[in-house]
Design a protein around this nucleic acid. Structure first.
Lengths: 203, 203
DNA sequence: TGACGATGTTACCGATCGGTACGTATGATC
DNA sequence: GATCATACGTACCGATCGGTAACATCGTCA
């Protein structure tokens, strides 16, 4: 939570009005949390890699859990940017837009070292309903499901909700199997399978 | 003297030749690791819930990591038992056998509190290639993929490997989305979607 | 019985965890 | 130069982590 007073004069260099250290912590946390997992990374390692110290972390973030939640908010913003990128390339074509994302995902999820979806991973790491990171992730997934229903309806599916569920299963399946198999994993068939499913859902 | 098992000299009561405490630890670890995650559970909590103490754990298991690997071996055995259960109900019918498992999974994955696949979760928790638990999980997933190829071939799919990939994506998607959405999640459509995919892959 | 090996218990280890009290450097304003 | 707010670092906290040494207890067989 950047609940800091907007510094009037000293105006740091970052795009925000936060201290410089906070931004470095944020970017470092994003990378480490995603690559290694939230539970696996201690705050000491974050500040060490960021080149700052712990008090600098706790001046901008209330706790490690809150920093994790902030990481997921960043992750979600980046996700939507990629997900909706196809809308500009294929305006008015819901199917092409979605498939554009699927093609990119199939690429990424079949590289070795792929780590899946940071939001899904966080839910796996924190089963307890109270954790702030989990809250962010669950809210996002509900939004994603709703968006898929809209896209499915725009494609002309007989039962948009059902097609959306199928697409969501494939999505999450690609995230997971990407971690499980790396290069040459089942996500290589993601696009073909999705096309079959969409075709079957249109009648 | 009375009812004795064919245990050599040191004859405990368990079904195995391991100490009684080891079996209690194993069952407790299985439940706690699955429900809360491996990283989230300390050895202290395991032995406490099992009603034993730490040295009893370390006499039967080399480390927490090894106990986690053992947990996953148990989990895998239980998985195959469920997965192959349909083979006896529908002998010679690969499609019916697979769908029997899918139906059960769709049920479980749409209950609130569902925690997904313990093997997949372990891979999410331990991204490092060296962890024994991850090794067990990855080996199992490769076996599962091969088994799905066999089943797809038995169904008469034009491209068995591709259908197997699609089914695996749906499987893993059900595991993940079950955790993300709980009751009423996308896994409710798992069976219908799988049927559509299989139909489209035959012809 | 006495001895022995296996199992269980008490009490503790160093390392690391997330988090904080408190002093220090800097830069603008008067 | 004195003042003050802001940003950052040094050094430390209690709690918990995984793991272990030393001792007590039990079952079995000579």
């Amino acid at each position: 939570m950047p609940s800091k007073r907007p510094s009037p004069s000293p105006a740091p260099d970052a795009t925000e009005d936060k201290p410089r250290a906070a931004e470095r912590i944020r970017r470092t946390a994003r990378e480490l949390f995603y690559r290694e997992g939230i539970r696996a990374i201690g705050v000491e390692e974050i500040v060490s890699q960021a080149g700052v110290t712990k008090p600098s972390l706790y001046r901008s973030y209330a706790s490690k859990d809150e920093l994790a939640a902030e990481y997921l908010r960043d992750y979600e913003a980046a996700f939507w940017e990629v997900f909706e990128a196809g809308a500009q390339v294929h305006p008015g074509d819901a199917r092409a837009q979605l498939m554009a994302y699927f093609e990119g995902l199939a690429q990424r999820a079949t590289q070795s070292g792929y780590r899946g979806c940071g939001l899904t991973n966080a839910v796996v790491e924190y089963p307890g309903d109270e954790h702030p990171a989990r809250r962010v992730a669950l809210t996002h997934k509900r939004k994603l499901r709703a968006r898929l229903v809209d896209l499915s309806a725009a494609m002309g599916a007989r039962q948009p909700a059902q097609l959306a569920d199928g697409l969501l299963l494939l999505l999450e399946g690609a995230y997971a199997s990407g971690q499980l198999f790396g290069r040459g994993g089942p996500a290589a068939s993601l696009v073909t399978v999705a096309e079959q499913l969409i075709d079957a859902s249109l009648r």
